[in-house]
Design a protein around this nucleic acid. Structure first.
Length: 641
RNA sequence: GCCGAUGUAGCUCAGCUGGCUAGAGCACGUGAUUUGUAAUCUCGGGGUCGGGGGUUCGAGUCCCUUCAUCGGCUCCA
């Protein structure tokens, strides 16, 4: 007999060799009906897997992430089979489950797949699914595995096998299809009731641009047709929140090919929004002891040689700007830190002056490949809410935590509650990517991890994602379609102070190096506004929105009274406008709704006679008639930040 | 940059297998209307169909090329 511990901590005894599904059946019929995979002592298992030792079991259904993973991973096998049948001679590589669905990377050789093939692939997949083939996992010796893929003439699988140890290699069979696979499947293909091929794209073998480009086919599948329909509808809904669409409709920003790719043009309403965000942060930063600085958009080549940017990005950036006679070389600034280091160097600091905190809304320019550009979220020219803190090593911990607090304050005020925190450290195997010595890196990484742990922030650690000069702490937020974007960022840097020979005099009259913190709570105004628009569907917080109200006169007769109301509100620093067109009130309301203006003030005979205003909010809530003072109170209450 | 899709008026889109002077709604301009909680009516201007080249008696439609846009190129059997 073996002892099995369940999720709730209780234990049960079963005969050695009992299958996962039998245990599920023993617990309840309902569980047995819904379980699609399981894990045992952290290892992924299938329903048919037999258990031979004591341990902890966890069952997964479609409602668990792990269950979905097994479902989608299994689906990718079926898709691979369908595509192999329709396009003979192709070579399969990898096909994992992803956050939403699955993909398979395929070397298509001479074949080409395009959208017109999607329905054929889908139909074949569904056919296979209906045939109810069991997924069967079996071990294989390394020798046999190698032989199998030598016969198949598949160098990709051979490369994968090469990285695996003999004894841990398994295959998965279903129908007449075999794939190298570590397991985690649903019992059989018939559970898959709905499938959709979503798109195809190029993807490099092992994510390396120097390798051959494969064709990646993305798909998603569901145990019910209805779920697929809902999924597709959700995507359609999410597309309505696309910041590019909202930005255009609300006249916030635009792009022009004549100006250049990835170079946003800010329209008056967008600038209004930006200034409000900037001023909000200016105020918070002033309170936190920052001083504003300003630096030019270009810098001498020497500046970037010193900082290391030239070595790292010199070749792969905008080409230098040269003076006609002296032949001096300037670069558009990719970051503000070198300039800020030189501001620090413009005077001598005592330990009593530290920390010094320089902030700037600094516009920077970076070359991004044309295919990487994306609305306001990835551009070639953008403004960082940048600041650099120069402090002593003793001050590092508390300074870092203060920056975390400031960033959290920004996110909270803007109602971005759904974010994740990511610590990005070096890739220890690829040291050439970074500048500075190991000791400095280790110190920086430790400082960040300690601060995050002390602050009890739930976080992930990503190896190899650090900046070239130091590790960082990033605040990530999803866009409407669930793509992750880095917004706020905090970085610890021992390297630039060294390179720029930054010093301060300590209390023993000794020259010492300060530590530097780079930080930007928004990250960039562009990306932040983009994500804010997608998260709010364009319904910005009242304190931020360009127009807080619009006055809608019933007829021209009330023009004078409307102007009085406008003046009164403006005197209370509430901003808005009057819709003076000779349109019906229904029309004016509709247009105000489309412009997402938070409050509509309807004024007709009734209101002007009684010295009142009728208030309606965006979305149709009727506040009824009230005095202007009462409306002012409502707005003041709602704009407290 | 690479893979796939798309590109018709400021916006959203129609235009079948190539065949009259390229259409609609919204937006814009004009005139009328002065309106009570999500679209008042009238008339009008606006497009060398992304650019270039080709096939054809004839191209928005077919082919080539180029530019731009969208999705992806991070998720490791």
């Amino acid at each position: 007999m073996i002892k099995i511990t369940l999720k709730d901590g209780s234990t049960k005894e079963y005969p050695k060799g009992i299958s996962v599904i039998s245990i599920a059946k023993d617990i309840s019929e309902g569980l047995a009906r819904n379980v699609i995979s399981a894990s045992f002592n952290g290892r992924t298992l299938e329903n048919s897997s037999e258990i031979t030792e004591n341990g902890k079991i966890e069952f997964y259904t479609w409602d668990d992430d792990e269950g979905k993973k097994a479902f989608w991973h299994s689906s990718s096998h079926v898709m691979a089979q369908a595509i192999s049948e329709l396009f003979p001679g192709i070579k399969l590589t990898i096909g994992p489950a992803i956050t939403n669905g699955f993909y398979y990377d395929i070397d298509l050789e001479d074949h080409k797949i395009s959208e017109s093939d999607f329905s054929n692939i889908e139909n074949r997949i569904l056919e296979i699914c209906r045939e109810k083939h069991d997924f069967k996992i079996r071990s294989s010796s390394k020798k046999n595995a190698v032989e199998f893929y030598k016969n198949e003439n598949n160098p990709y699988k051979l490369e994968l096998i090469n990285d695996l140890k003999d004894g841990e290699i398994t295959f998965c069979d279903h129908s007449n299809f075999t794939d190298l696979c570590k397991g985690g499947h649903i019992p059989n293909t018939s559970l898959i009731k709905a499938v959709k091929i979503l798109n195809i794209s190029g993807a490099f073998w092992r994510a390396d641009q120097n390798n051959k480009q494969l064709t990646r086919v993305y798909g998603i599948s569901f145990p019910k047709q209805k779920l697929l329909k809902e999924y597709l509808q959700n995507i359609e809904q999410a597309k309505l929140r696309d910041h590019r669409k909202i930005g255009k409709n609300l006249k916030l920003f635009s792009f022009s090919n004549k100006v250049g790719l990835g170079l946003p043009l800010w329209l008056p309403k967008g600038v209004d929004l930006r200034y409000r965000l900037e001023n909000f942060l200016r105020k918070a930063q002033k309170k936190a002891g920052y001083q504003m600085v300003m630096t030019p958009h270009i810098g001498n080549k020497e500046l970037y040689v010193t900082s290391g940017h030239y070595d790292k990005y010199g070749e792969d950036t905008f080409q230098p700007i040269k003076t006609p006679k002296e032949n001096e070389e300037f670069y558009l600034k990719p970051m503000n830190c070198p300039h800020h280091c030189e501001i620090y160097n413009s005077q001598k600091f005592s330990y009593k002056d530290l920390p010094v905190r320089y902030a700037e809304f600094g516009t920077v320019y970076r070359y991004e490949q044309s295919g990487e550009l994306h609305g306001l979220t990835r551009v070639r020219g953008f403004t960082q809410d940048d600041a650099h803190i120069f402090c002593t090593e003793d001050q590092l911990d508390s300074e870092f935590k203060n920056v975390i607090d400031l960033t959290l304050h920004v996110f909270k005020t803007l109602e971005l509650n759904d974010f994740s925190v990511q610590i990005s450290i070096r890739d220890a195997n690829n040291q050439e990517k970074y500048i500075g010595d190991t000791v400095a890196w280790e110190k920086s990484e430790k400082a960040i991890i300690k601060a995050v742990k002390d602050k009890k922030l739930k976080h992930t650690i990503e190896e190899g994602e650090a900046a070239f000069y130091g590790p960082k702490l990033d605040f990530m937020v999803n866009d409407a379609l669930g793509r992750k974007w880095q917004l706020g960022t905090i970085q610890v840097d021992y390297n630039l102070p060294e390179r720029f020979d930054l010093t301060y005099i300590d209390n023993n009259n000794q020259s010492k190096r300060p530590v530097m913190i780079h930080r930007a709570p928004f990250g960039s105004l562009e990306r932040f506004i983009a994500i804010l628009l997608e998260n709010t569907a364009g319904n910005l917080p009242l304190w931020l929105t360009p127009s807080q109200f619009i006055i809608l006169p019933i007829s021209e007769k009330h023009e004078k009274y409307c102007k009085n109301v406008l003046n009164l509100l403006e005197n209370n620093e509430i901003r808005g406008l009057i819709d003076n067109r000779s349109e019906t009130i229904g029309r004016k309301i509709r247009d105000a709704e489309i412009q997402k203006i938070p409050f509509m003030i309807v004024i007709g005979e009734k209101e002007s006679d009684q010295n009142l205003i009728s208030v309606r909010s965006h979305g149709g809530h009727d506040y009824g008639a009230m005095k202007v003072e009462d409306f002012v109170k409502i707005i003041e209450e709602k704009t407290k930040i």
